[in-house]
Amino acid sequence: MNIFRLAGDMTHLMSVLVLLLKIHTIKSCAGKSYPCSLCFILLESSSGISLKTQELYALVFATRYLDIFTDFISVYNTIMKLIFLGSSFSIVWYIRRHKIVRRSYDKDQDTFRHFFLVLPCLLLALIINEKFTFKEVLWTFSLYLEAVAILPQLILLQRTRNIDNLTGQYVFLLGAYRALYILNWIYRYFTEPHYVHWITWISGLVQTLLYADFFYYYFSSLKNNVKLKLPA
């Protein structure tokens, strides 16, 4: 474990916590007898969260952590896997099933056919992988899928007029975690002999590059202290 990977995992954990906080805020709002002004805004405007991206991430974790019960790495590793699995599936459940949270989900805007991402990633994993076994192909599939899983969310943000802070921070943290992982891979390449994982590295690089324009607008909005806005 190195500082880059720990920082990456913590950033990833933070992104999940921000999303859970946002869902909690929406839930607690509607619980009130009178909608406070913030609540009114929250409930009226769409949450800006893409269910499609959340579903893709749940699939990413489900196919990446198949070894959670067969290969024990460390307590930290197992706990983090359980957190990511539990949170991603519960977030999908909240947005799909929770009587209040699902009202803040704008399915008319979140129209990205994520099936068009799943199939190519699966085909690519069947062709390019480190070993043609069930677990290895699904693990490789999870890497390719994670690289593109943010696309429905980024497209939804372009359509969302006012991106609220929590959503912007969620996407920023999600992009930052993989950028930190790239530093971790560079560090491990120079410190560990034979540490070469081209598939992981290229997927992670593509994933981070997809955030490039978001990062640009995110930092510009911070610098100019204006509301985050993505050009359509």
């Binding site: 590793n77 693990w139 971790n184």
Partner: peptide
């Protein structure tokens, strides 16, 4: 057969 190293990253 050559065993792949364990996946120690999340």
């Amino acid at each position: 057969h050559q065993e792949l190293p364990l996946k120690d990253e999340l």
